[in-house]
C-alpha cells in the first residue's frame, strides 16, 4: 500500500478516482436507463414530432453530465482537502491531483457523450426513425465536450473553494462569477462541431476548431489558476461534510 516513490499529486488523483469511480458508473447507468426509457416511451406510446427526430433526445440531455461534473467539482475540496493535508499532502499537490482526477472524469464523460450521438442515430435508424448523421466529427466533438466538461468541473471547484476559503458573502459572489467562464466557454464552443450534432441554426461568427480549443483551454487554465490561488494558503477547516 505504501508507495513512497509515487508523486503525491498522483496519489491524490488515484485515491480520488477510486472514491468517485462508483459515482460515475452509477450516474451513467441511470442516465442510459433514463435515455432508453424515454426513447421507448416516445416510440411506442406517443407521437414523435420531426424536430425530435432531427435533434435527438441525447442532444437535449447533454447538459446532465456537465451538471453532474459541476456538482463533483463543488464537493471535491470541502470533502477531501482536510483529509489529505492532515496526512501530509500539500495544497499544491492536492490541487494538481484533484484536477487530474476531474480531467479523467471529464474525459470519460466526453467520450460517452460524443459516442451517444451515433449510437442514438443507429437506434433510430433501426426503429424506423428519419434522422440522419453524416460523417460525425467524433474526435473534434469529443475534444469540445472534454473541454466543456472540464470547464464545468473547474467552475464547480471555484464555488466549492470560494465557500471553503471565504465567508458566505464572498462565497456567493464567487458562485456568481464562476458561471461567467462556463457561459463564455459554451458561447465559444456553440459555434463549432457540437452545433452540427444538435442540428439547429446558429448565427454567431464561426471560429476555427483549433481557435475554439485554444480559447476554451485558456479559460480552463484561468479557472485552474484561480482555484490554486484560492487554496494556496487556505486554512484547513474542521470537517464540513
Amino acid at each position: 500500500m505504501n508507495t513512497p516513490n509515487k508523486h503525491s499529486a498522483l496519489k491524490v488523483a488515484g485515491s480520488l478516482w477510486s472514491s468517485y469511480r462508483m459515482t460515475l458508473i452509477w450516474f451513467w447507468a441511470i442516465f442510459v436507463v433514463v435515455f432508453l426509457g424515454i426513447n421507448f416511451l416516445l416510440l411506442h406510446l406517443g407521437e414523435v414530432d420531426s424536430d425530435m427526430w432531427s435533434e435527438g433526445i441525447w442532444a437535449g440531455s447533454v447538459y446532465s453530465p456537465k451538471i453532474f461534473l459541476f456538482v463533483i467539482g463543488i464537493l471535491v475540496t470541502p470533502i477531501s482537502l482536510a483529509s489529505y493535508v492532515s496526512f501530509g499532502i500539500t495544497r499544491k499537490h492536492f490541487v494538481w491531483g484533484s484536477t487530474l482526477m476531474l480531467a479523467g472524469l471529464s474525459l470519460v464523460c466526453a467520450i460517452l457523450t460524443a459516442a451517444g450521438f451515433p449510437i442514438e442515430r443507429l437506434i433510430y435508424d433501426m426503429t424506423g426513425g428519419s434522422g440522419s448523421l453524416n460523417q460525425p466529427p467524433l474526435l473534434e466533438s469529443s475534444l469540445e465536450f472534454f473541454v466543456l466538461c472540464f470547464g464545468y468541473c473547474l467552475a464547480g471547484c471555484m464555488i466549492g473553494n470560494g465557500f471553503y476559503r471565504h465567508d458566505w458573502r464572498i462565497g456567493t459572489i464567487i458562485c456568481l462569477l464562476a458561471l461567467l467562464p462556463i457561459i463564455l466557454m459554451e458561447a465559444i464552443v456553440e459555434s463549432g462541431s457540437l452545433i452540427r450534432f444538435m442540428s439547429y441554426s446558429f448565427h454567431s461568427p464561426s471560429l476555427a476548431p483549433w481557435l475554439e480549443l485554444i480559447l476554451t483551454l485558456a479559460i480552463a487554465a484561468m479557472m485552474l489558476a484561480l482555484n490554486f490561488s484560492m487554496l494556496r494558503k487556505v486554512t484547513i477547516r474542521r470537517k464540513l461534510v
Binding site: M1, N2, T3, P4, S8, K11, G14, S15, S83, Y84, F87, G88, I89
Partner: peptide, 14 residues
C-alpha cells in the same frame, strides 16, 4: 480511511 492514510504517509506500518 486507513487505505488513504497508508497511501499518503511514507512511514505507514500496515
Amino acid at each position: 480511511g486507513l487505505k488513504l492514510a497508508a497511501l499518503c504517509m511514507p512511514y505507514w506500518d500496515s
